[in-house]
Design a protein around this nucleic acid. Structure first.
Lengths: 356, 356
DNA sequence: GGCCTCGTTCGAATCGATTCGACCAGCCTG
DNA sequence: CAGGCTGGTCGAATCGATTCGAACGAGGCC
């Protein structure tokens, strides 16, 4: 059972013990400014005997006006966001990039369920030098509004481009177009697509025209555009409430049950695609002989082995690093350029010629 | 391209604009202390017109001595930690619990590769009121040492109990014993186990006596003890470098290839177990007719469907909440009791009678 | 009418560091 | 030997809020 220390020793204590002024003691730790080696070691020695573990970050932060913290706002409840390997890997890339800069990542829950207060207390009042919004981010997003109001610079990942935020994304549209052309080249004409959520409503099922006209989330719209860019009108556009295997499986069961089923299913994520593959197997359909399935993201999915999903690979760790770069730019220069990363088609074993 | 605000407006500006003193303005925001309604609304009005979004957290933190931040140290590179659904779900439970308390989670990378500095800069100097070590945590852990030195109270999850840290864990040993008894009751005698890493070395392969004598990580040791508690001497103890499907698959291939293969494989995690199941299928073995496989954690693994892994369910979200409670106790009372959560056996479809 | 009290508001100290300009001694140069 | 420079140290101001005790005005009571 640990106990809180009675009284932290401060830099002033150390200075007194070493017989120097506080400012000199500060110099001994920060390394900035001139200080004699002998003096420094005397201060360090005093610190050691007093059990002083270095300057209190709170004091330093107030003075410098910097907290060294990057708030990462998940576009969804953490529970769900964390189940998405894409988000996780990007986050990992980000942390890896930020670490050497001495910046830490603070997890900020995104929009809660309706039962919760609309704006998370952390979002409203935690200290952060920059915020990263990982998903969603429409123009009228309350998260963005709060951050703007607080004067916190924003990096928006896969969101709607806006004048005062730095955007990081990938070539969704081009990648999806390339994937679609690959499937078309194989001879498919009856093509369905399974999409990411349209907006916060997170509906599930085939989308009608009206629904299609109101896609709030940029990422979903762009990947859908990629399909039409390649000249394909999907026979069905199936919306899912989240990028998870089970929602893909549900979509697969619905799309592949009928007699006039599509010969190819293009999914906006690999998790959705693997759900479709599982559903197909469950229905006794062979992939790709009876139906071709493709995803997006380029994940390694060990449980589909020996199959390899045909997919659009995006550089996840690089995306995290790019976000980190944008953060660094914002912090040093005050501005950051938009960043768009390239993607590449990965042809696997889940796509082939349509059944005769 | 966002720009850093030229000059943040401070509480003093707001006070001046409202024609009150700084202390009164502070009262208007904090709500503590008496203040006339008219005065408060005047201050709030002034704040609004000045675009003041509330007290600067840095100032407040310095004064209060609290940062409102809980550092979570992953016992591994984030890259790997994040791929583990167990860690993720616990983290989610923790964040959910901490949010309403106004506490945020700061991700602190754990022990890096050997190429990196031994102690992460964040660990050494980021502001945090309490630290949570998620994995590992032996007595001589450099992470714990650094935290102790900084005087930061510690919550240790699944680590080695130590006098000055609050421990949170589950009944590993009892759960594994129960699982083992279940398999024994089915008639199995040739039982192998696939374990979590023994220590930072992360070796892979069958462990000999010498290796078995030096298991550094408590969680691995406890789950192994559970097996022997049930009176079983495993025919092989296979160590893995991480709890991932691919390492389980490698273990499965190695264990199930020979003629004198075990009839049951007990794994210390569900991810490892599902790797073993995949390897078995790959080798043409039926589960559970030819070989029984069991895991630990009680995860939902949609891609094993329609199979359900026999496993030991642990309450992951509750574990996160328990960690949050320990953190809260530490912050208010200065001490926290150890917490041990119960587990329960989940009998699925992957265990059955041994082949005749 | 004077005094006490209650409800508000204000001033000043404080949290723990960083940093800028002043200052001082010693050394180099003219 | 005087003046100038430089490396090293120190004082004091500052970052932005919170908080405690003092002060103050108004209303109630004796």
């Amino acid at each position: 059972m640990p106990t809180l220390p009675a009284q932290r020793t401060t830099l002033a204590d150390v200075a007194a013990a070493a017989g120097v002024s506080v400012s000199t003691a500060s110099l001994a730790f920060s390394g900035s400014g001139p200080i004699a080696d002998r003096t420094r070691s005397r201060v360090l020695e005093a610190a050691r005997t007093l059990g002083y573990a270095g300057p209190n970050p709170l004091g330093r932060q107030l003075r410098s006006g910097r907290s060294g913290i990057v708030g990462v706002v998940m576009g969804d409840a953490l529970r769900r966001a964390f189940r998405d390997p894409v988000t996780i890997q990007v986050l990992d890339g980000l942390v890896t990039r930020l670490g050497p800069l001495g910046l830490g990542v603070l997890l900020v829950p995104g929009p809660h369920d309706a039962s919760q207060p609309p704006v998370d207390p952390l979002l409203a009042s935690a200290a952060m030098d920059v915020a990263v919004q990982m998903w969603g981010g429409t123009t009228d997003d309350p998260v963005l509004e709060t951050l703007r109001n607080r004067g916190i610079p924003i990096v928006l990942v896969e969101g709607t481009p806006q004048p005062d935020v730095a955007a990081v994304g990938i070539d969704d549209r081009g990648g999806m177009a390339e994937l679609t052309r690959h499937v078309v080249a194989l001879g498919h004409t009856r093509i369905a697509t399974v999409t990411l959520p349209f907006d916060r409503d997170r509906a599930e099922g085939a989308a009608d025209e009206a629904r299609l006209a109101r896609i709030g989330w940029e990422i979903t719209r762009r990947r859908l555009r990629g399909v039409t860019d390649a000249g394909v009108q999907p026979v069905v556009v199936w919306e899912t409430p989240a990028s998870l295997v089970e929602h893909g499986a549900a979509a697969g069961r619905a799309l592949l049950s009928g007699d006039d089923r599509p010969t190819a299913v293009l999914c906006q994520s690999d998790l959705l695609a693997s759900g479709v593959v599982l559903a197909a197997r469950e229905l006794g359909l062979r992939v790709p002989e009876d139906v071709s399935v493709a995803g997006f993201d380029g994940l390694d999915l060990p449980w589909l082995a020996p199959d390899v999903l045909t997919s659009v690979s995006q550089p996840l760790a690089d995306k995290g690093a790019a976000i980190g770069d944008a953060v660094a730019d914002l912090l040093t220069g005050g501005t950051a350029e938009d960043r768009v990363l390239p993607v590449s088609l990965r042809v696997g074993t889940t796509t082939g010629r349509p059944p005769a």
